[in-house]
Design a protein around this nucleic acid. Structure first.
Lengths: 144, 144
DNA sequence: ACTTATTTGCAACAATGTTGCAAATAACCG
DNA sequence: CGGTTATTTGCAACATTGTTGCAAATAAGT
């Protein structure tokens, strides 16, 4: 019954059928330590010199494939990544939360706690994934 | 009363305070002729040799700034553009329609006709823009 | 400790987006 | 019209982002 034990990157990796390697532990550690989503370049800058650019790309790709993190596209085309909740697996990602991009601090958050209304598509359309992206000013930046 | 006379790119450009130039007419023509959104590279490939890559970038940027087209970020980070409706101007974009990205044909559509429920953000968050992106299979591709 | 499949780093490349500047041109005005 | 001016374009150069192949390194199972 130790499935999805957050807080320990190693078990998380094991649960998602990923080999335990230094990059993966470090990158996963970043995600667990920050409340906001990270882009490839964010990660690259934090872990300067530790790992190759390409390795970080491949790490992120592996994480997405195994259902550990999900991609968040911003309006300008920048792709960020954030941890998935328990409901994601190798088979499929199940996200129905809102992503919030703050124009002031530039950070992107997953708003897990608000309800997302379901959208009815026109006849003939079927969807596998739904993405909500709000742009504005976040809690912290509004306080100032 | 000839405001927003769609079908004529020239008046549309005038209404948005943009100088009439060949690139702008051609690019705008593409948007008016296609039902789906176009990326920079789409446009570049259609208008091969006619204009410089950079010019097309700047054209798109100008269109977005003046409220003529809006950006649509796809999940993979590809940015596409589509015509705005009458409600957009130089001051602000007002979009509350769903963008639909078809995995089969790869095309992206604006679904203007379906209602989008409003989302209530947590205390402290304020938003200026809301973006809905659905991924799946479109009408045409489902038919086959 | 040995074996094997996976992962990493490196190098090279491809695609995408940005900037500065001189030449070309759209719009305005008499 | 023709002249003037502010805007726009093309070019060149560069920056960033993402991809691929391959040999060396290494995690995991026996």
């Amino acid at each position: 019954m130790k499935k999805h034990t957050h807080g320990n990157g190693t078990t998380l990796l094991e649960n998602h059928k990923l080999r335990i390697t230094p990059v993966r532990q470090q990158v996963l550690g970043l995600f667990m330590g920050k409340p906001h989503a990270l882009s490839h370049s964010d990660i690259e800058q934090i872990l300067v010199g530790d790992f190759d650019r390409v390795t970080i790309y491949r790490t992120l790709t592996a994480f997405v494939e195994k259902g550990l993190v999900h991609k968040i596209p911003a309006e300008n085309g920048v792709v960020r990544y954030a941890l998935c909740k328990d409901t994601c697996s190798e088979e499929a990602h199940h996200h129905s939360h809102v992503h919030f991009n703050c124009g002031a601090c530039g950070q992107t958050f997953c708003l897990e706690n608000i309800s997302v209304p379901s959208i009815t598509l026109p006849q003939g359309y079927t969807f596998t994934d739904m993405n909500y992206l709000a742009t504005g000013t976040c809690k912290n930046c509004n306080k100032v």
